Computed example of a mutant assay.
Amino acid sequence: MRVRLLGPLHVSHAGIAITPVARRPQQILALLLLNHAQVVPLSTLIDELWDGHTPKTARAAVQTYVFELRKKFARATGRSTDAVGEQILRTTRNGYVFVADLSQFDLRAFRWLEQTGAVAMADGDLATAAHNFRAALALWQGPALADVDPGPSIRAELAGLQQSRAMMLGHRIELELRAGRHREILGELADLASHDRFNEELQAQFIIALYRSGERTRALEAFHGLRREMVGKFGLEPSPKLQQCYQAVLNSEPLPDRMPVLPLPGEPSVPPPPRELSWGPWSTWSTSA
């Protein structure tokens, strides 16, 4: 079974799409997949679907939605609904849990690459860390669960995911700059900087990449443009880090060549690799799957 959450919700088995169309079954399936192999309490599902405006029929409605999901999985997999209830979408004492063995699951691959990349950074293997981060970010096909109308639980999960993605992107760019790949990522940085105007770490990375690429005038213009916007909108000057970067560029100093923008994180623990990562599923995903 293939599951994609980092973009529009997509679930398929042997080429047969299983993704529900109706809003509430979508929410239930999305929340169960976000918590794959973990029990999601019935109360959490009810709050997700009705966000504090719970009807008296909520418990029965959730049971009906789950039964409809099981029927979809049964048709796609050729199993009975009872088998689906045991092997794919299981009822527990206080909720439900999605237990199917997933051959490809983009969120699990993303998390594993994120953690192994962080370990590689801690070990000083910056090339491997950058490679893993590039692979993890390439799994995204747009905003996570882009076509799902989220309730409170899914919104919280998505906020955490987006934070992880943004942090990983910042570290990946930092690694690229430390590896001297400023010219290769300059176009990407220009696009990112234009869409995230007040991310000062990103703007500092952009200015450094411009300067190292021989674009001193553009680097100075980038700082002045950002400063005008910050003063005009917030009444604030750029951060000391950005001002230090600007002064170095202004004086044609070598400082930006050795100036780190983001500190590298400490070493986390590494979980056992998920089964599908032994053959690198992030390189085989198809948007038409």
Results as ranks from 00 to 15, higher is better:
271 P>L: 01
239 S>D: 02
176 E>P: 02
269 S>C: 03
219 A>N: 07
224 H>A: 04
270 V>G: 00
167 M>D: 13
261 V>T: 12
244 Q>N: 07
237 E>F: 13
214 G>K: 06
237 E>A: 11
158 L>Y: 05
240 P>T: 02
242 L>S: 05
162 Q>A: 15
152 P>M: 12
185 I>K: 09
268 P>L: 06
187 G>N: 09
229 E>K: 15
222 A>T: 07
268 P>D: 04
248 A>P: 10
218 R>V: 02
247 Q>T: 11
223 F>N: 01
221 E>S: 09
240 P>M: 00
229 E>T: 10
172 R>Y: 11
199 N>R: 12
243 Q>L: 08
242 L>G: 03
251 N>E: 03
174 E>F: 10
197 R>W: 12
182 H>C: 10
225 G>H: 02
244 Q>C: 00
175 L>I: 02
231 V>R: 15
160 G>L: 14
154 I>R: 09
203 Q>G: 00
236 L>D: 08
249 V>P: 09
236 L>K: 11
233 K>Q: 15
176 E>R: 07
203 Q>E: 06
170 G>P: 09
170 G>T: 07
258 R>D: 03
220 L>T: 07
266 G>A: 05
184 E>T: 11
180 G>D: 02
270 V>F: 00
191 D>R: 15
207 I>D: 04
209 A>V: 14
203 Q>R: 13
245 C>H: 02
254 P>C: 03
163 Q>Y: 08
186 L>W: 06
178 R>F: 03
264 L>R: 12
211 Y>V: 04
218 R>Y: 13
183 R>M: 06
203 Q>Y: 07
256 P>N: 04
216 R>G: 10
221 E>D: 09
215 E>P: 07
226 L>Q: 13
221 E>G: 02
217 T>R: 14
158 L>W: 09
245 C>N: 08
160 G>R: 15
212 R>E: 03
251 N>G: 03
232 G>K: 10
171 H>Q: 14
163 Q>E: 15
186 L>V: 10
185 I>L: 14
206 F>M: 08
233 K>T: 11
243 Q>D: 01
253 E>W: 09
225 G>D: 03
237 E>Q: 12
226 L>N: 03
165 R>Y: 12
264 L>K: 13
158 L>H: 06
272 P>S: 11
198 F>S: 08
197 R>E: 05
164 S>Q: 15
216 R>D: 05
162 Q>N: 14
248 A>L: 06
253 E>M: 09
215 E>Y: 12
261 V>H: 11
212 R>M: 07
151 G>F: 06
195 H>W: 07
260 P>T: 07
202 L>M: 04
244 Q>K: 13
259 M>Y: 11
154 I>P: 08
218 R>F: 06
189 L>V: 06
271 P>Q: 04
230 M>Y: 06
172 R>E: 10
241 K>N: 11
216 R>C: 08
266 G>M: 01
274 P>Q: 02
220 L>F: 02
271 P>Y: 05
159 A>F: 08
241 K>H: 11
262 L>S: 08
237 E>C: 00
167 M>K: 15
183 R>G: 01
238 P>I: 07
161 L>E: 02
212 R>C: 10
216 R>L: 02
268 P>I: 03
231 V>F: 09
229 E>A: 15
239 S>E: 13
152 P>T: 12
258 R>M: 12
252 S>E: 08
161 L>R: 05
249 V>H: 10
210 L>Y: 01
199 N>W: 03
162 Q>F: 08
173 I>N: 15
